Amino acid sequence: MAFLPKVLPLLLLAVVCIQLSGGYSPTVQADVRDRCWCVENLKKGLRKDTIEEFSILPSRPYCNEVEIILTLKQANNSSKGIKRCLDPNTLQGKNLQSCWKSRNTNNTFTFKMSNCPMTQNA
């Protein structure tokens, strides 16, 4: 029993240190995805006027595919835009990647569709 009073403060100190160091953070771990985001890709482009913005995620160690995530414009006053994945090998996917590479000056993943005026559908 004399062992418990000596170990308990050390255990509490270890828990506090882990919390302060960020070693365990449920919100961060829930947001980090260790796989590709896109399970299914659209094989055909969407009309440009239906797309609000797009994100291009380059290949990563846990996902060797370039992923294009389209955020569609809100319909019927919905609170969130619907997200769809676009096959990066479609004409529209290639055009979006080209626009993103040429106009993305601050290296962000998400880009407004209005920044790509020449992007074609298909």
Score class of each variant (00 low, 15 high):
10 L>Y: 00
79 S>T: 06
77 N>Y: 04
17 C>E: 04
54 F>T: 15
107 N>H: 10
36 C>P: 02
122 A>G: 14
96 L>E: 08
44 K>N: 09
108 T>H: 08
92 Q>Y: 15
15 V>D: 01
20 L>A: 13
46 L>S: 09
102 S>Y: 04
59 S>R: 14
55 S>G: 14
39 V>K: 13
2 A>I: 02
70 L>C: 05
44 K>T: 12
91 L>C: 09
85 C>L: 00
65 E>W: 05
15 V>Q: 08
104 N>H: 03
4 L>W: 12
91 L>E: 13
24 Y>L: 14
78 S>W: 12
122 A>E: 15
81 G>W: 04
105 T>M: 07
87 D>Y: 02
24 Y>C: 10
84 R>T: 07
78 S>E: 14
66 V>T: 14
66 V>I: 07
72 L>T: 06
78 S>Q: 13
17 C>V: 14
63 C>E: 15
91 L>M: 11
36 C>Y: 02
57 L>E: 13
28 V>M: 05
48 K>L: 11
45 G>P: 13
19 Q>F: 14
103 R>E: 15
3 F>S: 10
9 P>Y: 00
33 R>V: 08
19 Q>W: 13
42 L>P: 03
13 L>N: 12
75 A>R: 13
17 C>R: 07
57 L>G: 07
101 K>V: 05
31 D>M: 10
7 V>P: 01
115 N>T: 03
104 N>P: 03
54 F>E: 15
110 T>A: 06
51 I>A: 05
47 R>M: 02
63 C>M: 06
8 L>V: 11
62 Y>R: 06
7 V>W: 00
64 N>M: 05
